[in-house]
Protein backbone atom coordinates (compact mmCIF):
# COMPACT_ATOMS: atom_id res chain seq x y z
CA UNK A 1 0.00 0.00 0.00
CA UNK A 2 2.57 2.57 1.15
CA UNK A 3 5.90 2.08 -0.59
CA UNK A 4 8.88 4.17 0.36
CA UNK A 5 12.08 3.53 -1.54
CA UNK A 6 15.49 4.99 -0.87
CA UNK A 7 13.96 8.26 0.34
CA UNK A 8 16.47 11.04 0.81
CA UNK A 9 15.29 14.36 2.22
CA UNK A 10 17.12 17.52 3.13
CA UNK A 11 15.90 20.78 4.58
CA UNK A 12 15.04 23.37 1.96
CA UNK A 13 16.56 26.25 3.88
CA UNK A 14 19.71 24.61 5.14
CA UNK A 15 22.11 22.14 3.73
CA UNK A 16 21.09 19.49 6.20
CA UNK A 17 20.29 15.94 5.15
CA UNK A 18 17.70 14.38 7.46
CA UNK A 19 16.45 11.26 5.74
CA UNK A 20 19.27 9.27 4.25
CA UNK A 21 17.66 6.44 2.33
CA UNK A 22 14.47 5.22 3.98
CA UNK A 23 13.03 1.95 2.71
CA UNK A 24 9.68 0.92 4.05
CA UNK A 25 6.58 -0.88 2.86
CA UNK A 26 3.31 -0.93 4.76
CA UNK A 27 0.83 -3.47 3.48
CA UNK A 28 -2.93 -2.92 3.63
CA UNK A 29 -4.40 -4.33 6.81
CA UNK A 30 -1.10 -4.12 8.71
CA UNK A 31 0.20 -2.03 11.55
CA UNK A 32 3.82 -0.97 11.37
CA UNK A 33 5.49 0.77 14.27
CA UNK A 34 8.52 3.03 14.04
CA UNK A 35 10.69 3.62 17.08
CA UNK A 36 13.96 5.43 17.24
CA UNK A 37 16.00 7.97 19.15
CA UNK A 38 15.02 11.64 19.30
CA UNK A 39 15.99 13.49 16.18
CA UNK A 40 16.35 10.39 14.04
CA UNK A 41 13.89 11.68 11.43
CA UNK A 42 10.55 10.04 12.32
CA UNK A 43 8.47 13.21 12.28
CA UNK A 44 10.29 14.40 9.20
CA UNK A 45 9.24 11.23 7.41
CA UNK A 46 5.64 11.79 8.44
CA UNK A 47 5.70 15.41 7.25
CA UNK A 48 7.30 14.52 3.94
CA UNK A 49 4.62 11.89 3.36
CA UNK A 50 1.85 14.37 4.09
CA UNK A 51 3.37 17.17 2.03
CA UNK A 52 4.59 19.83 4.39
CA UNK A 53 6.71 22.64 2.90
CA UNK A 54 10.32 23.12 3.81
CA UNK A 55 11.73 19.78 2.77
CA UNK A 56 13.42 18.80 -0.44
CA UNK A 57 13.36 15.23 -1.66
CA UNK A 58 16.79 14.65 -3.19
CA UNK A 59 16.32 11.01 -4.07
CA UNK A 60 13.91 8.12 -3.82
CA UNK A 61 10.14 7.64 -4.12
CA UNK A 62 7.02 7.34 -2.01
CA UNK A 63 3.81 5.93 -3.46
CA UNK A 64 0.39 5.06 -2.11
CA UNK A 65 -1.24 2.22 -4.01
CA UNK A 66 1.04 3.06 -6.91
CA UNK A 67 0.28 6.79 -6.94
CA UNK A 68 3.24 9.11 -6.57
CA UNK A 69 2.63 10.94 -3.30
CA UNK A 70 5.55 13.30 -3.65
CA UNK A 71 4.00 14.97 -6.69
CA UNK A 72 0.75 15.78 -4.90
CA UNK A 73 -0.40 18.79 -2.90
CA UNK A 74 -1.17 18.07 0.76
CA UNK A 75 -4.93 18.16 0.15
CA UNK A 76 -4.57 15.73 -2.76
CA UNK A 77 -2.66 13.34 -0.55
CA UNK A 78 -5.42 13.62 2.03
CA UNK A 79 -8.00 12.84 -0.65
CA UNK A 80 -5.85 9.90 -1.76
CA UNK A 81 -6.09 8.58 1.78
CA UNK A 82 -3.08 9.86 3.74
CA UNK A 83 -3.74 11.05 7.27
CA UNK A 84 -1.19 12.32 9.76
CA UNK A 85 -2.04 12.57 13.43
CA UNK A 86 0.38 15.37 14.37
CA UNK A 87 2.94 15.06 17.12
CA UNK A 88 2.02 18.66 17.92
CA UNK A 89 -1.56 19.37 16.79
CA UNK A 90 -1.98 22.95 15.64
CA UNK A 91 -4.19 25.49 17.40
CA UNK A 92 -6.35 27.55 15.05
CA UNK A 93 -8.09 30.42 16.82
CA UNK A 94 -11.30 31.58 15.19
CA UNK A 95 -12.03 28.33 13.33
CA UNK A 96 -14.62 26.16 15.08
CA UNK A 97 -13.71 22.51 15.50
CA UNK A 98 -17.04 21.44 14.05
CA UNK A 99 -16.79 23.73 11.02
CA UNK A 100 -13.27 22.49 10.42
CA UNK A 101 -14.32 18.84 10.59
CA UNK A 102 -17.28 19.31 8.31
CA UNK A 103 -15.26 21.29 5.78
CA UNK A 104 -12.57 18.61 5.77
CA UNK A 105 -14.99 15.71 5.46
CA UNK A 106 -16.89 17.37 2.62
CA UNK A 107 -13.75 18.53 0.82
CA UNK A 108 -12.51 14.94 0.74
CA UNK A 109 -15.87 13.55 -0.31
CA UNK A 110 -15.99 16.09 -3.10
CA UNK A 111 -12.47 15.23 -4.23
CA UNK A 112 -13.55 11.61 -4.45
CA UNK A 113 -16.70 12.45 -6.37
CA UNK A 114 -19.07 11.71 -3.49
CA UNK A 115 -21.97 13.86 -2.35
CA UNK A 116 -21.51 16.13 0.64
CA UNK A 117 -22.72 14.75 3.93
CA UNK A 118 -25.94 16.42 5.06
CA UNK A 119 -25.67 18.55 8.17
CA UNK A 120 -27.83 16.12 10.11
CA UNK A 121 -25.89 13.02 9.08
CA UNK A 122 -22.63 14.72 9.80
CA UNK A 123 -23.77 15.79 13.23
CA UNK A 124 -24.97 12.33 14.09
CA UNK A 125 -21.71 10.78 13.05
CA UNK A 126 -19.52 13.31 14.83
CA UNK A 127 -21.47 12.99 18.03
CA UNK A 128 -21.22 9.22 18.07
CA UNK A 129 -17.51 9.23 17.33
CA UNK A 130 -16.76 12.02 19.76
CA UNK A 131 -18.63 10.21 22.47
CA UNK A 132 -16.55 7.07 22.00
CA UNK A 133 -13.44 9.20 22.49
CA UNK A 134 -14.98 11.01 25.46
CA UNK A 135 -14.80 14.34 23.64
CA UNK A 136 -17.63 16.48 24.98
CA UNK A 137 -19.90 18.77 22.99
CA UNK A 138 -18.15 21.83 24.36
CA UNK A 139 -14.84 20.76 22.83
CA UNK A 140 -16.50 20.35 19.46
CA UNK A 141 -17.75 23.91 19.58
CA UNK A 142 -14.48 25.47 20.59
CA UNK A 143 -11.90 26.69 18.09
CA UNK A 144 -9.64 23.93 16.76
CA UNK A 145 -7.33 22.76 19.55
CA UNK A 146 -7.35 26.16 21.26
CA UNK A 147 -7.05 25.73 24.98
CA UNK A 148 -7.22 21.93 24.65
CA UNK A 149 -5.01 19.99 27.04
CA UNK A 150 -2.24 17.88 25.51
CA UNK A 151 -4.35 14.75 25.79
CA UNK A 152 -7.46 16.45 24.42
CA UNK A 153 -5.53 17.53 21.35
CA UNK A 154 -4.43 13.97 20.70
CA UNK A 155 -7.97 12.66 21.09
CA UNK A 156 -9.12 15.36 18.69
CA UNK A 157 -6.62 14.05 16.13
CA UNK A 158 -8.10 10.59 16.43
CA UNK A 159 -11.61 12.01 16.07
CA UNK A 160 -10.55 13.63 12.80
CA UNK A 161 -9.07 10.34 11.67
CA UNK A 162 -12.25 8.50 12.55
CA UNK A 163 -14.34 11.01 10.59
CA UNK A 164 -12.08 11.06 7.55
CA UNK A 165 -11.57 7.29 7.38
CA UNK A 166 -8.20 7.48 5.62
CA UNK A 167 -6.48 4.51 4.00
CA UNK A 168 -3.05 5.21 5.36
CA UNK A 169 -2.96 6.40 8.94
CA UNK A 170 0.28 7.86 10.25
CA UNK A 171 0.30 8.46 13.99
CA UNK A 172 3.19 10.54 15.27
CA UNK A 173 3.58 10.01 19.01
CA UNK A 174 -0.13 10.05 19.55
CA UNK A 175 0.49 8.41 22.92
CA UNK A 176 2.58 11.23 24.34
CA UNK A 177 0.59 13.33 26.77
CA UNK A 178 -2.14 10.73 27.21
CA UNK A 179 -3.10 9.41 30.61
CA UNK A 180 -3.65 5.69 31.04
CA UNK A 181 -7.40 5.84 30.39
CA UNK A 182 -7.06 8.16 27.39
CA UNK A 183 -4.44 5.82 25.96
CA UNK A 184 -7.01 3.03 26.09
CA UNK A 185 -9.69 5.19 24.45
CA UNK A 186 -7.38 6.31 21.70
CA UNK A 187 -6.17 2.77 21.08
CA UNK A 188 -9.74 1.54 20.89
CA UNK A 189 -10.42 4.33 18.39
CA UNK A 190 -7.49 3.18 16.30
CA UNK A 191 -8.31 -0.50 16.60
CA UNK A 192 -11.88 0.17 15.52
CA UNK A 193 -10.48 1.48 12.24
CA UNK A 194 -8.25 -1.53 11.64
CA UNK A 195 -9.40 -3.44 8.62
CA UNK A 196 -8.21 -5.18 5.51
CA UNK A 197 -7.98 -2.07 3.39
CA UNK A 198 -6.19 0.21 5.83
CA UNK A 199 -2.55 0.55 6.77
CA UNK A 200 -1.06 2.11 9.90
CA UNK A 201 2.30 3.64 10.61
CA UNK A 202 2.59 4.24 14.32
CA UNK A 203 5.51 6.32 15.57
CA UNK A 204 6.12 5.90 19.26
CA UNK A 205 8.78 5.80 21.93
CA UNK A 206 6.97 3.40 24.21
CA UNK A 207 5.93 -0.20 24.29
CA UNK A 208 2.87 0.87 26.29
CA UNK A 209 0.95 1.99 23.21
CA UNK A 210 1.92 -1.16 21.38
CA UNK A 211 0.33 -3.22 24.15
CA UNK A 212 -2.97 -1.77 22.98
CA UNK A 213 -2.31 -1.39 19.28
CA UNK A 214 -0.57 -4.61 18.40
CA UNK A 215 1.91 -4.05 15.59
CA UNK A 216 2.68 -6.56 12.88
CA UNK A 217 6.11 -5.11 12.22
CA UNK A 218 8.41 -2.89 14.27
CA UNK A 219 11.11 -0.73 12.67
CA UNK A 220 13.96 1.07 14.29
CA UNK A 221 14.94 4.38 12.73
CA UNK A 222 18.30 5.94 13.42
CA UNK A 223 20.03 8.82 11.72
CA UNK A 224 17.59 9.01 8.84
CA UNK A 225 17.39 5.31 8.00
CA UNK A 226 15.46 2.23 9.01
CA UNK A 227 18.27 0.26 10.58
CA UNK A 228 16.40 -2.76 11.81
CA UNK A 229 12.98 -4.34 11.39
CA UNK A 230 11.38 -7.19 13.25
CA UNK A 231 8.28 -8.42 15.02
CA UNK A 232 6.63 -7.03 18.15
CA UNK A 233 9.48 -8.43 20.24
CA UNK A 234 11.76 -5.72 18.84
CA UNK A 235 9.76 -3.08 20.71
CA UNK A 236 10.14 -5.04 23.94
CA UNK A 237 13.87 -5.22 23.39
CA UNK A 238 14.01 -1.42 23.01
CA UNK A 239 11.87 -1.01 26.10
CA UNK A 240 14.30 -3.10 28.17
CA UNK A 241 17.68 -2.22 26.73
CA UNK A 242 17.33 1.09 24.93
CA UNK A 243 18.88 1.63 21.52
CA UNK A 244 22.57 1.18 22.35
CA UNK A 245 22.77 -2.54 21.57
CA UNK A 246 20.79 -2.26 18.35
CA UNK A 247 22.82 0.69 17.11
CA UNK A 248 26.10 -1.02 18.00
CA UNK A 249 24.96 -4.14 16.19
CA UNK A 250 24.09 -2.33 12.92
CA UNK A 251 27.23 -0.23 12.97
Amino acid sequence: MLDIKNLHVKLEEEDKQILKGVDLTVEAGKVHAIMGPNGSGKSTLSYVLSGRDGYEVTDGTATLNGEDLLEMEPEERAAAGVFLAFQYPVEIPGVGNMTFLRTAVNAQRKARGQDELSAADFLKEVRAKAKALKIDADMLKRPVNVGFSGGEKKRNEILQMAMLEPKMCILDETDSGLDVDAMKLVSEGVNALRDEGRGFLVITHYQRLLDHIKPDVVHIMADGRIVKSGGPELALEVEHNGYADILAEVN
Binding site: E75, V90, T103
Partner: peptide, 24 residues
Protein backbone atom coordinates in the same frame (compact mmCIF):
# COMPACT_ATOMS: atom_id res chain seq x y z
CA UNK B 1 1.79 28.53 7.29
CA UNK B 2 1.53 25.90 10.00
CA UNK B 3 -2.21 26.37 10.34
CA UNK B 4 -2.56 26.36 6.56
CA UNK B 5 -0.71 23.05 6.30
CA UNK B 6 -2.77 21.56 9.10
CA UNK B 7 -6.01 22.39 7.26
CA UNK B 8 -4.67 21.18 3.93
CA UNK B 9 -3.44 17.95 5.44
CA UNK B 10 -7.09 17.26 6.26
CA UNK B 11 -8.05 17.69 2.63
CA UNK B 12 -9.12 21.33 2.61
CA UNK B 13 -7.94 23.13 -0.55
CA UNK B 14 -5.39 25.95 -0.25
CA UNK B 15 -7.98 28.43 -1.26
CA UNK B 16 -10.64 27.30 1.14
CA UNK B 17 -8.10 26.97 3.93
CA UNK B 18 -6.86 30.50 3.27
CA UNK B 19 -10.43 31.77 3.36
CA UNK B 20 -11.12 29.97 6.62
CA UNK B 21 -8.04 31.47 8.23
CA UNK B 22 -8.89 34.90 6.85
CA UNK B 23 -12.38 34.79 8.33
CA UNK B 24 -10.93 33.52 11.58
Amino acid sequence: ETALFYLRSRGVSVREATNMLTLA
